[in-house]
Simulated scan of single mutants.
Amino acid sequence: MNETSAFTQDHWIAGPTGKLFARSWQADGESNGADSTRAPIVLLHDSLGCVTLWGAFPQTLARATKRRVIAYDRAGFGVSDARADRLAAHFVSDEAARFFPALCEQLGIERFIAFGHSVGGGMAVECAARHAGQCVALVTEAAQTFVEDRTLAGIRAAREQFRDPTQFARLARYHGDKTQWVLDAWIDTWLSPEFADWSLDTVLPRVSCPTLAIHGSLDEYGTRVHPERIAASVSGPARAAIMEGVRHVPHREQEAQVAAMVADFLQPLAH
């Protein structure tokens, strides 16, 4: 391999509702176990995401940080097993309580860095709070901390876009026959009255690890109030990083810049 490549490995995890698919990336030159004592970065995807939709970012992140990077398809997403149930209003905290521990246990993860995009950012916050003794750092990207009007407006606009069979078919490339469930899990849950009062207000103060909250200035699903609230509310050292001219997916729009930003943030960590 050349110096810009990364070793990948696929994993199957026995989760609470079926098998979960995970993939790990390890920077070239680190495959001999040289980085085995360093906490890996675990990626938690957004509401329509999966491992494949992270694109090249996990490999770029592994190279930039010299850390193992792990991403997984949440239950019902990507190639993980389908779910027969509907998402409950507490699904964000449920991910940290039920599914994430299964991943850590079966992959032998004792310490981790939680990195979550969009709703995955809220899940990363929950993981950092619930598993504070294991989480050495937290990175959120385009995360929501409460149900904001802009978020709901963006979801309603997306609902109309996915009525187009072409748009639906594009999403189906990643989720197959689970695609309608994935859309309903996002749209119906976020627009439901039961979810209207959801927030991370009581969770954020329980996050004691270093935290970086990344957000695009043009994010169509949330204003900068979210990263600023994260940075102001966690109990550990934290800062918000606003990326000018960037929308809801910074790691796709500015892949190298996001990876470099995270690498710089993690560089002082001992583990």
Rank of each mutant, 00 (worst) to 15 (best):
S217N: 12
R156L: 11
S93G: 04
C104T: 12
L20I: 11
Q144N: 14
V203H: 08
Q26D: 00
D94C: 02
P40F: 05
G76K: 00
A231E: 09
V92H: 07
P101D: 08
M261G: 15
F21M: 00
L152N: 04
V125E: 12
G236C: 01
G236P: 06
F265T: 08
A270H: 05
W25I: 00
A232Y: 01
A27V: 01
T189L: 15
H271E: 07
Q267P: 10
S208L: 05
L87S: 07
I41V: 15
I70D: 03
K66N: 05
D201E: 14
T52C: 05
F168P: 07
R23V: 02
D46K: 01
A27S: 01
V203C: 15
H271M: 06
H117W: 15
Q161K: 15
G245E: 11
A88Y: 08
F146G: 09
A196I: 10
D10S: 02
S47V: 14
F265P: 06
C127I: 10
D219N: 15
V136F: 02
T140S: 13
G49I: 13
I242V: 11
T202H: 11
L191A: 08
A143M: 02
C135K: 00
S208N: 10
V225S: 10
H248A: 11
Q257G: 07
R67I: 07
R239G: 11
G133I: 01
P16C: 05
R159G: 12
Q134W: 01
F146T: 07
D85R: 04
M1T: 06
S80Y: 00
V182T: 01
A129K: 08
I155P: 08
D197I: 01
R163P: 10
L218V: 08
